[in-house]
Nucleic acid binder design. Structure first.
Lengths: 169, 169
DNA sequence: CTTGGAATGTCAACAAGGCTGACATAAAAT
DNA sequence: ATTTTATGTCAGCCTTGTTGACATTCCAAG
């Protein structure tokens, strides 16, 4: 995609794109991501789970009945890696895996009540952090935040994700 | 640009803080971080290094002569974990470890020429991604991006980092 | 219908990089 | 002289990536 497009960028924005500014952005991203995961990580540690379990719970909750394959694509890991996490979640009764109706090779994934409860605890902790940051920064900053993040994603991955969401209804 | 009233937010900002908006922010953070690390990760794979090596190189380059203890604090890992990474970087001739002048228990860490070169390759890839995102979003969005990220950090950790930077000059 | 390939998911084994605990050494501080 | 601090190292564990091998299921071509 043509990086130019929307902008009508004047010379002004060359000013703030010094290496020093970019480096500060990189470090901010590093430290912020640590803060972003810190609260859920503490909860997960109590349950002997890791971040991978959180990600699985999040996206299963997000798209009920998603397949293992969909989840792989979204999470960007191998099926073997995801399988290990799913196995423990299923064994612990947090996730239910039903054989697909139309294609019986597929497994449709759902959160059980217990799964929903843990997911709620985790996402609540994370939302609280996010909410506090949004409040402190203000609505306009939030809009900018989202714009930059979206520009920073690998386009393919995100488009796949959107496509998956739209395909199922 | 107008967003002047950084504090004193009216009731308006309650509107955009729905759980759905927060969830989108959380997912954007997840996908963006993947994009953020993707390019350096590819380079690191060629050298049989991992993300941990990149982080060490980055912060040694950032504050020449930093000590092991400072680095632990900034990176938020244990000395055993950092030591493993540092050992390989020193063995491979990318990092030099000199006994401290004033306190000879300390080790001051420096990048060698080879270390600087790899660091440059990695950070250039990451800066390119960041620059493209900044360009696409525009200066105002970048300001908001930084504001939200800074509000999302664990305050203590970041303050320690700033303190470290200021202490040495 | 049968057979071969493709898609999907599971099991096994390995590696990176976190972690804790224990311990050694050297130097600084008391 | 003793204690504390900074660092390094060894051993062992856990999570979460990886690849390889394999079973099951579906579908399409013969």
């Amino acid at each position: 995609m043509g990086q130019g497009g929307s902008g009508t960028l004047g010379g002004e924005n060359l000013l703030f794109l010094t290496d020093e500014q970019l480096r500060k952005g990189i470090e901010a991203m590093f430290f912020a991501y640590r803060g972003f995961t810190a609260d859920p990580d503490r909860i997960l540690a109590d349950h002997a789970y890791g971040r991978a379990h959180h990600r699985a719970l999040h996206f299963i909750n997000r798209t009920h009945g998603t397949t293992v394959n969909n989840l792989l694509t979204v999470l960007g890991v191998t099926k073997q890696s995801l399988n290990r996490v799913l196995r423990t979640l299923i064994a612990d009764g947090l996730v239910e895996s039903r054989v697909g109706r139309t294609d019986r090779r597929e497994r449709n994934l759902y959160l059980t009540e217990a799964g929903k409860e843990l997911e709620r605890m985790l996402s609540e902790a994370q939302r609280n952090r996010m909410r506090a940051a949004y409040r402190a920064a203000g609505p306009q900053a939030v809009a900018g935040f989202r714009q930059v993040l979206e520009a920073m994603m690998d386009d393919e991955i995100f488009r796949q994700y959107i496509a998956l969401k739209e395909r199922r209804t």
